[in-house]
């Protein structure tokens, strides 16, 4: 090996190290308690500091926030799921040979969307212990919407509670799903989630008449 080659390898190693380090540093972005626009379509007012995940395993029209880390609690914003697309899938899943995920249809009613999220959770979290309940109509972003609670147990056997709120506008699904460990991490931040939902407005293309 020549000196030049050694030097080049060293520079390459350093460069890759910096790139990897940068990736680590930017995995989370701080979301200050100021009005935020999510995916150019949902405007909310957080009441505390959140963390936005810049890289995650969810694939779809989603933005992911957390307070204590995604294992403990996660907030998924659905930023306009169009007809024919799944709510989310796993980024790491290959496409070949995989079973097709269930998809959103603009003609779905809230009961069917609850069923869709249940099936999506079953697939994404690889569990048979996932259910939605207490589905209710609620006003959201100055329009009609719906809300239901979720309960699931994942591969780690941790029980997680959650709540989903959503609305269909212009044939797209907009919403948010907050879920966290039933023990402490869900209940503690549920009021914060509810305040954010109450502050939510649809903007951009979501607000178009």
């Amino acid at each position: 090996m020549t000196m030049d080659t050694t030097s080049m390898n060293l520079r390459l190693t350093l460069f890759l190290g910096i790139v990897l380090l940068a990736g680590c540093v930017t995995r989370f972005s701080l979301v200050p308690p100021e009005r935020q626009t999510v995916g150019d379509v949902i405007s909310v007012q957080p009441g505390m500091k959140w963390n936005k995940l810049n890289s995650h395993n969810y694939q779809g029209r989603v933005e992911v926030w957390t307070l204590d880390g995604p294992v403990l609690n996660t907030l998924l914003f659905f930023t306009g799921v169009p007809d024919g697309e799944p709510l989310f899938t796993q980024r790491t899943m290959g496409s070949g040979g995989q079973e097709k995920p269930p998809v959103f249809k603009a003609s779905m009613n809230p009961v069917e969307i609850q069923e869709l999220l249940e099936a999506t959770i079953a697939r994404y979290f690889q569990t048979t212990l996932a259910e939605g309940r207490n589905l209710k109509p609620v006003p959201i972003a100055e329009g009609k919407g719906f809300r239901f609670e979720t309960r699931m147990v994942g591969r780690d056997e941790v029980e997680r509670d959650g709540v989903f709120v959503g609305t269909i506008r212009n044939k797209k699904l907009y919403g948010a799903w907050f879920q966290g460990a039933k023990l402490y991490y869900y209940d503690r931040y549920l009021p914060e989630f509810d305040r954010m939902v109450a502050s939510a407005r649809l903007v951009g293309e979501a607000a178009a008449k």
């Binding site: 079973e99 995920p101 269930p102 249940e118 099936a119 079953a122 697939r123 048979t128």
Partner: peptide, 8 residues
């Protein structure tokens, strides 16, 4: 229900 949730 578990079979239906697979959506196959």
């Amino acid at each position: 229900g578990d079979e239906l949730a697979l959506r196959q």
